[in-house]
Amino acid sequence: MFSDRVQRGYLALLRNLAGHDPTIPGAPRISWLAAHKWVVDAKINGFGPGSLGALQFANNLTLLGVASPPSPVEMAQWISDHQDKGAFCGLQVLGFQLEQKNASPSAVRVAFLCVYAWLDNFLTTDDKLVLDFGPIFVEQLLCKVGRWCRRLNDYAAQKTAKVALSQLADKAFEGARWTSGENLTQFNKWPFPPCTKYKPAVFRKIIESR
C-alpha cells in the first residue's frame, strides 16, 4: 500500500502542505474532492471508486485539517453517485421519494439539503461543536437511520408487533413543547424538533434561507 508510487503521489497531492503542521491557522489545504479523487485514482485495494474506504480517507484528511470540508452539494453528489450506500437508504427511510438506485442527482441533492438545512437551523452552536456538525456529520447520521430501523425491527420480531422508528419518535414528542437548547441540560430532550410540527411554509423558508 505504501509503495514509492503511492508516497510520491501523496506528496504531489499535498503540494505546499507537505512537511507543515495542518493545525496551524492559515495553513494551506487541499480540497475534499481532490483527496477523494486521489485515493481512488491511486488504485489501492479497498479504496476503489464505489468504496466507503475512499470516502473515509477524504473525511479523515478533513478531520486532521489536511483537507477542507466538503460543501453540502459535494456531499449530496457523493450520495447520488453511491445510491447503494447507507446515506441514500437513510433519505428513503426519512420519507423522501427517491427511486431505488436510479434517483436523479437533483432529487438526491434536494433531499440531502433539506435534512442538512433543518439540522443547521435548529441545532445550537454548542450542539454543533459537540457533533462537529457539517456535511460529513449529516452523511454519517443518515447512514445510521436505516441501520437503526432494521435493529428495531429485528428486536420487534421477538415481540408481538413491530417497533416503527416513526412511532417511537411520535411518542417521544407527543404533548411536549420543543425548546432550543433544553437538550444541553436535560438528557431526555431533543436537540431539534420534528418537521411534522411545522407548516410547509416554515420548512420552505428554512431551506431558502440557506
Rank of each mutant, 00 (worst) to 15 (best):
L142A: 05
R150Q: 11
S166R: 13
L152Y: 11
K162H: 05
G175M: 10
Q167A: 13
A164H: 14
L141F: 15
W148S: 06
Q158D: 11
T179V: 15
A161M: 13
E139S: 01
R151V: 02
N183F: 04
A157E: 09
K159L: 15
D154K: 13
N153F: 11
W178Q: 09
A157S: 11
R150H: 09
L165K: 01
A172H: 10
F173V: 07
L165T: 07
N183I: 09
A169R: 07
A156K: 06
L142I: 09
K144Y: 00
A156I: 13
G175L: 12
G181C: 07
V138L: 05
A176K: 15
C149M: 14
V145H: 01
Q140H: 07
D170Q: 10
V163T: 06
A169D: 14
L165I: 08
G146D: 04
S180L: 07
Y155T: 12
G181R: 06
A161Y: 01
A164K: 10
A176D: 04
K144I: 12
G175Q: 04
K171G: 09
K162T: 13
L142S: 02
D154F: 12
W148V: 14
S180H: 08
E139Y: 00
L168P: 00
G175S: 13
T160R: 13
S166C: 09
G146I: 02
K162Q: 14
G181V: 03
V163S: 14
K171P: 00
N183E: 02
V138A: 10
T179Q: 08
K144D: 01
K159W: 09
T160Y: 08
L184P: 00
L184Q: 15
E182T: 12
A156W: 02
G181H: 04
